[in-house]
Computed example of a mutant assay.
Amino acid sequence: MPRRLIQRYMPHPETLKRTRSLRFISHIVGDASLWVLTRRSVGNAFMVGLFCALLPIPFQMLLAAFGAWVLRCNLPLSVGLVWLTNPLTMPPIFYCNYRLGAWLLDIPASQVPDRISTQWIAERMVEALPALLLGSLVSAVVLGLAGNALIRLIWRWNVSRSWRRRARRRQQARKQTPSPIDTDSANKSPAPEADADRPEE
């Protein structure tokens, strides 16, 4: 994963320090070691961020920041990935988690009505909570581990490709640059030939 691409979209430390839910851990947010971009720190950050994003709980950003501090991975990526579940994506994601949990518990899943109301949600919340929690936990673990592994593979592939490009450039540079032996031969003047027509004394 190219560092420049990640750094372009990473928030500034001061931006995270001003975030309301992270203000009281500003000393952790400002830790320079939690802003390092390596294959390990980025891979673990994706795991932490995706895991927290799929949990139907409040204070996801705070949990992601704490997880980044415990695993010593990239904090802004961990916190930023939490926004995978936002007001637009939460309903379909958590409903899929609920369906998964209902399938794992072998219970019938409730169908979503044409018009969702707060009353319907309140009535179904207690009934759906076990399936929602189980499905969300399974999805969070699977997606977090898969994201970690995928990022590490992409990072390794990108590094290998960079090394191959450098090796090709060096080979091309060697081909274009004349060797020292050829240069010395070209600089040497030809030895004077013996004058065969010169009469002997």
Rank of each mutant, 00 (worst) to 15 (best):
R8C: 03
Y9W: 15
M10C: 14
M10H: 11
T15C: 05
R18T: 10
R20I: 00
F24L: 04
S26P: 05
H27E: 12
I28G: 02
V29A: 07
G30H: 08
L34I: 09
R39S: 14
V42W: 01
N44W: 13
A45L: 08
M47E: 12
M47S: 15
M47W: 11
G49T: 13
L50I: 15
Q60I: 03
Q60F: 01
L62E: 07
A64E: 03
G67V: 03
A68Y: 02
L71Q: 06
C73S: 04
L75S: 05
L75W: 09
P76W: 08
L77Q: 03
L77Y: 04
G80V: 06
N86V: 07
P87W: 10
M90Y: 11
P91C: 12
P92A: 07
P92I: 12
F94V: 01
C96Y: 00
G101R: 03
W103Q: 07
W103N: 00
I107S: 11
P108C: 10
P108E: 09
P108Y: 04
A109G: 13
S110D: 09
R115H: 13
Q119N: 03
I121T: 08
E123N: 10
R124A: 12
E127G: 03
P130T: 09
A131L: 07
L132C: 05
L133S: 10
A140Q: 06
A140W: 01
V141W: 09
V142S: 01
G144R: 11
I151M: 15
I151Y: 10
N158K: 05
R161F: 07
R165T: 08
A167N: 00
R168S: 15
Q172E: 14
P180A: 12
P180N: 05
I181E: 13
T183A: 08
A186W: 06
E193A: 08
D195N: 12
D195I: 04
P199H: 11
